[in-house]
Amino acid sequence: MMSDPILPSAAPAHAGAAPQEQAVKVRVRDVTVSYDGAMAIDSVNIDIPDKSVMAIIGPSGCGKSTFLRCLNRMNDTISGCSVTGDIRIDEEDVTARNVNPVMLRARVGMVFQEPNPFPKTVFENVAYGPKIHGLAATRAELEDIVETSLRRAGLWDEVKDGLHKPGTSLSGGQQQRLVIARAIAINPEIILMDEPCSALDPIATARIEELIDELRQNYCIVIVTHSMSQAARISQNTAFFDRGKLIETGTTEQIFTNPRDRRTHDYITGRYG
């Protein structure tokens, strides 16, 4: 009865491989977010392991993106938004007032739903982070960082002859990989992705998924997705949110094959709502 109709048979071999031995990177306790008094997420507790992909799924408006934005305190930039609770990265409290959100955001990169490269050249896009954080002492170092990041994002071969063309002239999928290259150019520890493939076609999506799978070796990745097949393909752990509450979290295999909660089951089998 609780058979898995979604997990594709052609899923990468490592998907669902036991990630439990990974140390916890982010520990979230009792996090509650409200916008002008309206509760958006309610007392979320979750542990996100390092060097793996955590997928966050759930129906629209369930607070997935809000939760994601807690992790790099992007919610601070929204007026009327209040966050309570405790978020620790490597056991360090990042919600404390004395933690500089700028410092935090250098450690926690973010990729948005719509590709949003700066209206500058491809090179300037990737070089921006290293420049403002002072990571490259010389031009040669900067060029090196840019090339490495673009290679890691799998974009180098496509843009190496057009580094000084505007980043916005690339295709949607290339733009999204450019944004990922920009994020990893400052070597963050965590990368947050908010539905990174929802504006892309299946081929571009496949390339991004491949890329996420490679990046998993070095980073802790948290991805919000509407596509359950994508969650099943690329993540090791999955969290299901519904109406601002974390309903269930576990390994992706367990969530998709043997969900403990009725709502999770209904959602992944498409019977929700």
Partner: peptide, 27 residues
């Protein structure tokens, strides 16, 4: 100026002043 540009810069760890000076004002 679209908010996505501000978000992109802030998410990269730019300060507000840097966001304004590097991205918002030129646009």
């Amino acid at each position: 100026v679209p908010g996505s540009v501000r978000q992109a810069a802030l998410a990269m760890g730019a300060t507000r002043l840097q966001t304004v000076n590097h991205h918002v004002l030129p646009m």
